[in-house]
Structures are given as structure tokens and as C-alpha cells.
């Protein structure tokens, strides 16, 4: 069986979506399928590029390659799912959120443009048509499935998958820092954590790992830390290796992951795999599907004071933090988040 996994790419940017796509292809191969990843670079600016890329995907022919039939396509993201195929099974990481849940939110880039509404309506129309021609639709989390139902009235089934190198995560004795690995971008809310650090009673230290989407935001964050007088407490590592990432996870006191309405959130699962308590926010979306407040981590309100209190709590009570971390790992193991389950579901058409 030949399977094409369809997605978009952003050259020189490696995030959760890219890892997800590569991991899926690897898993499909491991289970005996012939699988390829097909991507088209996707830029969301200027807005015309969104329409261009929608058209590009719609014009793709992946029904066969060199005379050999392609049996199944699995698109993962907007606008890859616009590609026509008689056997199309979407596993949705997320739609173009600016057109949906982020519309009217200050982080919505689309809305700052005069043609925002026009592009938004076109995206929604194209999405509805694309979903209508799918054999099945899976979402990578309950949160994504809920959004799809809310905005497009489309039913889908949540289908969880393990993070990359899930087997590689381990735990060591905690050092005195929290770990916040993520792309540096507004929606991940690093700024909120900087404000929270400034409000902590203890000299809490947070290590941020990841690069800025736009190549500039890291500097803004550094300047903000400087202004808040917490430069010594907010360490920005930039992009780190996989090995370094596992080590920072293993030795941290806890993981911080407070994004706004995240789709899925590998960071939560990686923290759990590393037996660490995770601090997230009540409006963080995907992470909430895996966190049990005060048992496997802390769910705080998304304001600096509440987050500062959560950090202080784990900082001053290391024992409790350790117990929460162990609970988190146990809980992860109970969820049966495996690639075999994913592959079985996606290939049954």
C-alpha cells in the first residue's frame, strides 16, 4: 500500500508539525507501508500567498506516481487537505487558526490586513469543501476536534500520538530551573512567563529553548527581561539539539507550557515522559487534555500572578514537584498513546 503524507513546510523552521509529519512517515514504514512525505513551502504573508498555496495543493495530482497508484493520502494541515484524492483521510494538526479561533484575537495576523475577511471566508469555504470529500477525519487532539465541530460543523475523532523519541525521555534529580521549550512566538506566551518571573517570591529561574519564528522575537524577549530586571532568571538558549533537550527535561524542576489554546502540545507529553510536573494555563487548550491539576502538574489562570504562584509552589516544595512528576509519567503510560494505534486507525479505509 502506497501512502502519501501531505503537509506544508517552512524552510529552516523545525517545530512540532514537522516532527509529527516525519514521525508518521517513519511509523507507517515501520508497519510495512510504503510512505512518502510531500510538502509545499507555505508562507502566510502577504495574504495572496495563502490563496496561492490553496490553489497549488488543489492542483496537485497524487493519485499516482510514475504509473503506480497511490492508495491513500493523509493530509495533516491547511491547506494540504485541499488536495483531491479518492482515498483521503485527514489527520488534522490544525486548521489555519487565524481564520477560526484566533479571529478577533490580537495575535491574529490575518485580521490586521484589509483583505482579512475575504481571505478568511475563502479559507473557510475551501476547508468545508475539502472536509466534505474526505473518507475519514481524525484530529490530533480533542481540542482540535472541538474547534472543527464548532467552526465547520464537521465531526472528527481525536487520535493521540507519542512525541518524537518518546522512548528517549528520562529523569534525573531536579536542578533549580524550570524548562520552557518551544518556538519563540506570541501564541506560546513566553512574555507572560517573563512577567510571572518578575512576580515570584523566590528567585525562580526559567530556561527557554527554541528559536524565534521571525528571527527577531528572541531579541524582544531579552529586552523585556532586561526591563523587568530578571535577565539572570530568564535564560534563552536558542535552538538546541535533541540530546540537550532530553537532558534539560530530565534535570528540570518542572516544565512550563502556557500557550494560548494549543492544538495538542508535545511539550506537555514530553514533560510527562520525563516525569516532571507541568505548569500550564486554563486557556491553553491541548495540554489540558493530559494534565490533572495538583496531581500531575498545575493548571493556573493565564495571568502573571497566578503563574508566579504556581512556580513558587513547585520551587519551595520540591518533594511535591517530584511526586507530581512521577504521577505524570504513570498517567502517560496509562493512556496507551502509541504509533501502532495511530497507523491502524489511519490506514483502515
Amino acid at each position: 500500500m502506497k501512502i502519501v503524507v501531505l503537509s506544508v513546510s517552512a524552510p529552516f523552521i523545525m517545530g512540532g508539525a514537522e516532527i509529527h509529519a516525519e514521525s508518521l512517515v517513519k511509523a507507517l514504514k515501520e508497519f510495512g507501508y510504503e510512505a512518502e512525505l510531500v510538502t509545499i513551502p507555505f508562507k502566510t504573508y502577504p495574504n495572496q500567498r495563502i490563496l496561492d498555496t490553496m490553489l497549488m495543493f488543489r492542483l496537485l495530482d497524487v493519485t499516482e506516481s510514475c504509473g503506480q497508484k497511490i492508495d491513500l493520502v493523509i493530509p495533516l494541515k491547511f491547506p494540504a487537505y485541499l488536495t483531491p484524492h479518492p482515498h483521503k483521510v485527514v489527520w488534522l494538526l490544525h486548521q489555519h487558526r487565524d481564520a477560526y479561533d484566533l479571529w478577533n484575537n490580537p495575535v491574529c495576523g490575518l485580521q490586521y490586513n484589509p483583505d482579512g475577511q475575504q481571505i478568511r471566508d475563502t479559507i473557510i469555504n475551501g476547508d468545508n469543501n475539502a472536509f466534505n470529500e474526505c473518507r475519514k477525519i481524525y484530529a490530533n487532539s480533542q481540542n482540535v476536534a472541538k474547534r472543527l465541530k464548532k467552526f465547520n460543523n464537521v465531526d472528527s475523532t481525536p487520535l493521540y500520538h507519542p512525541p518524537k523519541n518518546a522512548h528517549g525521555f528520562y529523569s534525573h534529580n531536579s536542578q533549580s530551573y524550570f524548562f520552557f521549550p518551544s518556538r519563540l512566538t506570541k501564541i506560546k506566551r513566553q512574555e507572560l512567563i517573563l512577567e510571572a518571573i518578575a512576580k515570584t517570591h523566590h528567585s525562580v529561574k526559567v530556561i527557554f529553548a527554541g528559536s524565534a519564528d521571525d528571527g527577531k522575537y528572541d531579541q524582544e524577549l531579552r529586552e523585556m527581561a532586561e526591563k523587568l530586571g530578571i535577565s539572570h532568571q530568564a535564560i534563552f538558549l536558542g535552538r538546541i539539539s535533541e540530546e540537550e533537550k532530553l537532558k534539560y527535561y530530565a534535570e528540570c524542576l518542572g516544565v512550563i507550557y502556557p500557550p494560548f489554546d494549543e492544538d495538542y502540545g508535545y511539550v506537555t507529553l514530553e514533560g510527562m515522559l520525563s516525569s516532571k510536573a507541568v505548569i500550564s494555563c486554563s486557556d491553553s487548550g491541548g495540554p489540558l487534555e493530559f494534565l490533572i491539576n495538583q496531581e500531575t502538574g498545575i493548571i493556573a489562570e493565564s495571568n502573571p500572578s497566578a503563574l508566579a504562584e504556581a512556580m513558587d509552589q513547585l520551587w519551595e516544595n520540591r518533594n511535591k514537584s517530584t511526586i507530581m512528576g512521577k504521577n505524570a509519567r504513570k498517567y502517560y503510560d496509562s493512556l496507551n498513546i502509541t504509533w501502532s494505534n495511530v497507523v491502524e486507525k489511519l490506514t483502515t479505509i
Partner: peptide, 15 residues
């Protein structure tokens, strides 16, 4: 034809 079909798919409600 295929281009116009693709454009129609994106801009018109197929239902």
C-alpha cells in the same frame, strides 16, 4: 479546465 475547477473548489460552496 483543471485550473478553473480548482479555483471553483476554493471559492464556491460545493454543497
Amino acid at each position: 479546465d483543471n485550473v478553473s475547477e480548482a479555483i471553483k473548489f476554493i471559492t464556491f460552496n460545493q454543497k
